[in-house]
Design a protein around this nucleic acid. Structure first.
Lengths: 152, 152
DNA sequence: TCGATTTAATTAACATATTAACGATTAAGG
DNA sequence: CCTTAATCGTTAATATGTTAATTAAATCGA
């Protein structure tokens, strides 16, 4: 009755990722892109000029990882780093013409996979799944257990 | 109307993982364990003697990663590698007394987090979420797109 | 205005993921 | 039997995740 290992949230999520990500990766590989590199291009598609912090939040790629990913994207001339003038700590990441072109070419194919995955369940099922996972995410960490992190 | 980036399956799953895993990691860190190291101990808890292939399947840790993780567990005297006699290619991973003791101590606390996460939604919601994700996982890869991997 | 406190990006150190390839064994088939 | 194909664990090369610390720049308050 207790939570079986295989039915714990981490295992459920990992199983789903393991089953679905290869579909995306196969596509990305055709364009010499990694999943993370794609995510960055994808964000730059809608937001021309993004600071690293924003990019980290929007792509869910941790800031330290971001450094290397952007380095590699820069090496491929897909993005550029532009130091901000107002706040010289900040750095803006911008897609190059080549980067935007690549994004334009890959994007519809990614969307196709997105929709194909979504189509494996009913609209309502998907909606519930999304809502439930959101609810769980909110619940997490909100209740710091009894591990008394209290006085700071 | 098309699948928004933020609502794509990978992003949904990553958001959920990012929100929930810290709860577990905080616990593991107290015992100098990583998530992967824990998963291996957890499997050895119910199956005394497991081959690397099985371990990879049950923990969802890719075989090449498994090598390093087990190395570190061995260094800490938590598990041992035992070469099989019937099939000398195979290697059995076995938990040491120390490893079993540690698992016994950590296990209930992990279960507590498991249950706390599960309690953030109703039993039915959880059930639907689990079923929907399973359905999506099955749908993935089943339809190889038009990328004609056909004749092999 | 100066010093303590933040904040942005990065570096460092370590652990893991991904894909390909390799060596040792074993199973299959002719 | 003996060659060939398949399997298990592992190594290799590269990319990313995780946590802590560092550097430079901005901000805040005495």
């Amino acid at each position: 009755m207790s939570v079986n290992f295989d039915n714990s949230l981490p295992m459920i999520l990992h199983r789903t990722l393991d089953a679905t990500m290869p579909d995306y990766r196969e596509l990305f590989a055709r364009y010499n892109l990694t999943e993370q590199q794609w995510r960055i291009l994808r964000v730059l598609w809608s937001s021309k000029k993004v600071t690293s912090v924003d990019l980290s939040n929007r792509t869910l790629i941790p800031a330290p990882s971001l450094v290397g990913v952007i380095d590699r994207l820069e090496k491929k001339d897909l993005v550029t780093r532009v130091r901000s003038v107002e706040d010289r700590r900040a750095v803006f990441i911008v897609a190059t013409a080549k980067g935007r072109a690549l994004e334009a070419e890959v994007s519809p194919q990614v969307t196709e996979i997105d929709q194909q995955l979504r189509a494996s369940v009913t609209a309502e099922e998907w909606q519930v799944m999304e809502r439930v996972l959101g609810k769980i995410a909110l619940g997490a960490n909100a209740a710091p257990l009894k591990t008394a992190q209290g006085a700071k």
